[in-house]
Design a protein around this nucleic acid. Structure first.
Length: 447
DNA sequence: TGAAATGTTGGGGCG
DNA sequence: ACGCCCCAACATTTC
C-alpha cells in the first residue's frame, strides 16, 4: 500500500492535528519537515525563530520515534523536495495544515496536496457578513465569530504506521538564538498551557495589562509554531472571555491577511501611505536599543532583545512611540519585531503594527497617541517592570521612575542615575512630538 | 485597547 | 450671610 506524506510546517505537534489524523487514516505515513531557504533566509530572517523552530522539530522527531515513526528532514524548495520524496517512496497524497500568508499560498499552490484546518479556530470563508463579505472591523467580526460552530478537538494518535522503506533524512543544522528563549517543543508548550489554564486564566482580565506581572498566557510562541492548537487552547481557557477574545484577534488578523494580502507592503487604509514618515536614522537605533529616555519604552525594547518576547501592553506602547513620537514608518518596527520575536508572525505582527500606527483595520483614530509616561504610571505603577529591564533606574524612587529626567540633580546623584550620563534624557519631547504627528497625519488625510 | 483641552459643579477660604 | 475666587473632581469635547 502506498504511504502518504505528512508535510509539517508550523504545526509541530501531535495533539489536535487534523492533517496528521487524515494521514493516519490513509495508512502508512511519512512525516516530513522541509528546511526552506526562502523562509530561513527570506524577508523576515530571525535566529530566534529558527532556533525555536529547530528545537521543536527535534522534539517532534523524538515524539514520532516514540510512536514507532520518524521525521524525515530535507532541505530545498518544497515543491522539489516533495516531488522527489513522492518518487522515492511511491507516496501519492500529501497532507498539510493550511497556511495563509502570500508566500505560503504560492508555495502550497505549487505543491498541490490536501490542506487541513488546525492553525485557526475559524477559517476565512466561515466568518463573513450577511452580504457574504469579509469583515474589516473587529467588534462585528467577533460577534459573528462567537456564533459559529467549531470542529471537534482531535486526540493525538497513539501509533503511526511506517512505510516499507524510510527515505533518507538530512541532519538538523546547528542554530544559535540571539536571546534567552523559553523551552521549545510540544511537551513544554502543554506544560505552559496547563499552568495558564489552572493558575492564571482566572485573573487574566485584571492582570494581563501589567507588564511587571506574569499575568499573560505566555503561549504566543506555541501558537505561532503550532505546538498547541488554538482550538484546544480556546476550549481549555473558555472561562476567560478576555483571553478568548485575544485568540479571536489572532483569527481576525489571519483573515485580514488572507483577504487583503497587500497589507504586508501597504497600509490597510491606503490614504495613510501618504504620511511623510521621518527618515529612520539615529532615533530608530535608540528605539531598538532601548535608550529613548522613556523608561517604559526602553524596558520593553530591552526585554525584546533579551528574551525574544515582549509583553503585549508594552508592544502597543513601543509601537505608538515609534510611529507617533518618532514618526518612523511602522514597517521599520514591524521588521525589527520580526527579527527578534520568537512568536513573530506575519499576520498578527502586521495587524498589531498597523493598529498602533492607525493605518489598520479598526477605526482607531490617528490622534489616539499613547503618552509613554502615563502608560508607565498606569500599567507599571510601582516601576517593577522598568527596574527589571533598565538597571540604571533600579534605585530611582517610584515618583520619578517613569520620568527620571524630572529628578532634581541632588537626587540623581544620590540614586546613582545622572540624566544624560547614566540614563538618557528623553530623545523627543512627547507633547511636541504629538503635535507634529497630528499634523503629519492630517496632511496625509488631506485635512 | 488615549490624552489633552475645555466645560461644569460644588465645597471651602476669605473679604 | 453673601459673593467671589480657587481648584479639585468629574464630564464632555476635541485632537
Amino acid at each position: 500500500m502506498k504511504p502518504s506524506l505528512l508535510w509539517l510546517r508550523r504545526d509541530l505537534r501531535l495533539a489536535d492535528h487534523p492533517a496528521l489524523c487524515a494521514a493516519v487514516e490513509d495508512g502508512a505515513v511519512i512525516p516530513v519537515f522541509i528546511l526552506d531557504p526562502a523562509l530561513l533566509e527570506g524577508r523576515w530572517p530571525s535566529p530566534n525563530r529558527v532556533h525555536f523552530m529547530l528545537e521543536s522539530v527535534k522534539a517532534l522527531s523524538t515524539q514520532l520515534q516514540e510512536l514507532g515513526s520518524r521525521l524525515v528532514i530535507r532541505r530545498g524548495r518544497p515543491a522539489d523536495v516533495l516531488a522527489r520524496l513522492q518518487a522515492e517512496s511511491g507516496a501519492e497524497r500529501i497532507h498539510y495544515q493550511r497556511d495563509y500568508g502570500p508566500y505560503a499560498r504560492r508555495r502550497d499552490g505549487a505543491v498541490g496536496g490536501l490542506s487541513h484546518p488546525g492553525q485557526l479556530i475559524q477559517e476565512p470563508e466561515a466568518v463573513l457578513t450577511g452580504a457574504g463579505q469579509p469583515y474589516s472591523v473587529f467588534t462585528p467580526y467577533r460577534r459573528r465569530w462567537e456564533q459559529l460552530s467549531r470542529r471537534k478537538v482531535l486526540a493525538a494518535p497513539t501509533r503511526l504506521q511506517s512505510p516499507d522503506h524510510w527515505p533518507s533524512s538530512d541532519p538538523v543544522p546547528p542554530s544559535k538564538p540571539l536571546s534567552q528563549l523559553l523551552e521549545a517543543g510540544e511537551t513544554a508548550a502543554r506544560r505552559r498551557l496547563e499552568q495558564f489554564a489552572q493558575d492564571k486564566v482566572a485573573d487574566y482580565a485584571s492582570r494581563r495589562d501589567l507588564p511587571g506581572c506574569p499575568g499573560t498566557s505566555r503561549l504566543s510562541q506555541d501558537l505561532r509554531w503550532g505546538l498547541l492548537s488554538p482550538l484546544e487552547v480556546a476550549e481549555r481557557c473558555a472561562a476567560s472571555d478576555t483571553y478568548v477574545s485575544e485568540l479571536c484577534w489572532r483569527d481576525f488578523y489571519y483573515h485580514i491577511l488572507w483577504h487583503h494580502p497587500r497589507v504586508t507592503r501597504q497600509a490597510f487604509r491606503q490614504a495613510l501611505d501618504q504620511v511623510a514618515w521621518e527618515d529612520a536614522g539615529e532615533y530608530l537605533e535608540a528605539w531598538k536599543d532601548g535608550r529613548t529616555g522613556y523608561p517604559i519604552v526602553d524596558a520593553a525594547m530591552r526585554e525584546l532583545k533579551a528574551t525574544g518576547w515582549m509583553h503585549n501592553r508594552a508592544r502597543m506602547i513601543v509601537a505608538s512611540f515609534l510611529t507617533k513620537d518618532l514618526l518612523i514608518d511602522w514597517r521599520e518596527g514591524e521588521r525589527h519585531f520580526m527579527q527578534y520575536l520568537v512568536d513573530g508572525d506575519l499576520a498578527a505582527n502586521n495587524g498589531g503594527w498597523q493598529w498602533a500606527a492607525s493605518t489598520g483595520t479598526d477605526p482607531q483614530p490617528y490622534f489616539r497617541i499613547f503618552n509613554p509616561v502615563l502608560q508607565g504610571q498606569k500599567f507599571d505603577p510601582e516601576g517593577e517592570y522598568v527596574r527589571e529591564w533598565v538597571s540604571e533606574l533600579a534605585r530611582v524612587p517610584r515618583k520619578f521612575v517613569h520620568e527620571p529626567h524630572k529628578m532634581p540633580p541632588g537626587l540623581q546623584e544620590m540614586v546613582g542615575c545622572r540624566i544624560g550620563r547614566d540614563y538618557p534624557a528623553p530623545i523627543v519631547d512627547h507633547a511636541q512630538a504629538r503635535d507634529l504627528a497630528l499634523r503629519a497625519f492630517e496632511r496625509a488625510l488631506g485635512k
